[in-house]
Structure formats: C-alpha cells, structure tokens
Simulated scan of single mutants.
Amino acid sequence: MDKLISDQAEGLRRLLAKSGSRVIAVTGGTASVGCTTTVVNLAAALAQQGKDVLVIDECLGARSVGAALGGLRGAGNIAAVVRGEMHLDDAAARHALGFSVLTASRSDREGHSSAQLDVLLHGSADIVLIDAQLDPQGHLSPLAILAHDVMIVTRVAAQAITDAYACMKRLHYAHALAQFRVLVNHVLSVEDAHTAFANLAGVAGRYLAVALEDAGCIAADVRTARAQELSRCVVDAFPSTPAARDFRHLAAELQYWPMRPAMSSQTRWMAPATVTAAQHADQPSAQHA
C-alpha cells in the first residue's frame, strides 16, 4: 500500500510539473563562479531525465553556451520569433546532448515588450534555462526578468560570497525581487556549502529582507575543467564523477520546486533614481557577508 501511495504521489507531482514551462534565470556575482558551466550541465542532465529543455544564451563570446559546447550553428534569430515570422523550435539549434539553444544578444533583446518576449518562454520546452547576462548596472535583461526563479551561483570563497550578496542587492533594488535560489559551486564538502549558504541567507535576510532558498551544491571536480577543455560538459563526458552526480541531483530536484508566478507579474522596474536612493539607504552591504 505504501508503494502505491508513493507512486500516486510521484505521478501527481509529475502532472503538476507539466502545467507549463518552468523558466529559471541563472546568474552570479562574477563570471568566474561557473554560471555557464552550470547551465550547460543542468541542461544535459535534464535532457537525460527526459525533459525538453531550451537554453537561452544571453552571453556572447568566449563565455557563451555555444563556446562552451565547441560552437553551435543556427542558434539565433529571436527577432524573427518575436515578430511571429519563425516558430521558436525552428529558430533554436538542437544540440546532440538533447537540448536546444537560442542565442539572445543584447541588441536582439532590446526594443520588445514583455508580451513579445514572453513568446520565447512559452514554446514546447518543459524547462527554459536562461544564462543571464547582467547589464553594466548589474540588472537583469527584460527577457530574464520574465523567469519564475533567479538562481545565483556562487562559491565558498569569501570574495565570491560577498559578490553574490552584492549581486542580489542590486537585483533586489532594481526589480524588487524578494527571493533567490542559491547554488554553491565547486565545494569540497557539503558542510562547507551549508555554512556558506547559511551565512549568505542570514545577511540577506537581515539587511535586505530577502529570502534565500538552498538549491544545493556542486562538488569541486577536476574533470569539470577537463570536460571544458574538450568542449563538452562533465555530465556527458564523465557521468560517474561527483560533479556529474550533483548536477543530476539538482536537475531532478528543480523539477518539483514550487512554481511561482513569473517575476514580471509580481514586480515592476524601479526608476534609476529610486534604485540609487534605496542602495544608499542600505549601507551594511556585502562586507557583512
């Protein structure tokens, strides 16, 4: 009987998870914490678990998803999708690992309304991962602000934690975000990750009244770097390693995160003057992290 109840509960969770595309924007305090690596490995792990995944790549150049995968052709033209001239599935490039990639440069993302950009997030994909590029002020793009969740990637190092706090502070004041998920990358132990998260959550709750949720951690693994050298991801190249297992665990867990309304439906953009005033009013900032 317990087995039957468990199977029924699992079936219900899966049914609820299919109620629409889950959109997650992934970013961090600095480029060195591994946001793009996280997006690529997470996409590969989700695809292995039978999910239809779309990666929207806002970061161009050497740190782009395409570069991490050794190059992708035809992963663009979001303007044609927004204008209704091309179907989303036709505009995105299909990678051999089973997920699709759509390049969204800053110029492609500008000049469109939220309703127009929303088309990019309501295709056939179960999960949309946005490798979010913050603007010079540290704010999300009009596309990334449509996500249901923002996941901040950080590391255990003190500077990385400080940078993550500063990133959340800017996003909080720019977009009135009150909640973030935190993934601690490149950790030597789960205990270190828990300590880093607890410290960050305490500071964010005290000085920003922002709630953090623990997205888990990814083990430090030399094969992650080796996979990058091979223009592959660790989930695909070295599936038995600790980092690959952690990415698969995260992929399985995030499918059952509570589905919140898109951030754009519960927040609004603050004027630059308002943002500046709010930031100056909150001086304890990152040094306490």
Rank of each mutant, 00 (worst) to 15 (best):
Thr162Arg: 08
Phe238Gly: 15
Leu177Asp: 05
Gly50Glu: 06
Val128Gln: 05
Val65Arg: 06
Ser105Arg: 11
Ser240Gly: 08
Asp135Lys: 01
Ile127Thr: 04
Ala125Glu: 07
Gly84Thr: 04
Gly216Thr: 03
Met86Glu: 08
Ser124Asp: 11
Ala125Asn: 05
Ala211Asp: 14
Val119Lys: 15
Val203Cys: 13
Ala147Met: 08
Ala25Met: 04
Leu250His: 01
Asp221Ala: 08
Ala174Val: 05
Ala68Leu: 06
His288Val: 10
Val39Lys: 08
Ser107Trp: 00
Leu54Gly: 09
Gly216Val: 03
Leu121Thr: 14
Gly74Cys: 02
Thr267Lys: 15
Gly11Ser: 06
Gln48Cys: 13
Ala160Ile: 11
Ala91Phe: 03
Val81Gln: 08
Thr30Phe: 00
Leu4Asn: 07
Leu46Met: 11
Glu253Thr: 14
Ala79Lys: 14
Asp131His: 04
Gly28Leu: 00
Ile130Phe: 07
Asp7Trp: 09
Gly11Phe: 04
Ser189Gly: 02
Ala144Phe: 01
Arg248Cys: 08
Val40Tyr: 01
Gln8Gly: 11
Leu120Gln: 03
Ala75Pro: 14
Ala273Lys: 09
Thr103Gly: 15
Trp257Ala: 13
Glu10Met: 15
Ser105Gln: 13
Ala43Arg: 03
Trp269Gln: 11
Asp236Pro: 02
His112Pro: 12
Ser285Val: 00
Ala215Arg: 02
Gly123Arg: 00
Met270Ile: 15
Leu183Gly: 11
Ala178Phe: 10
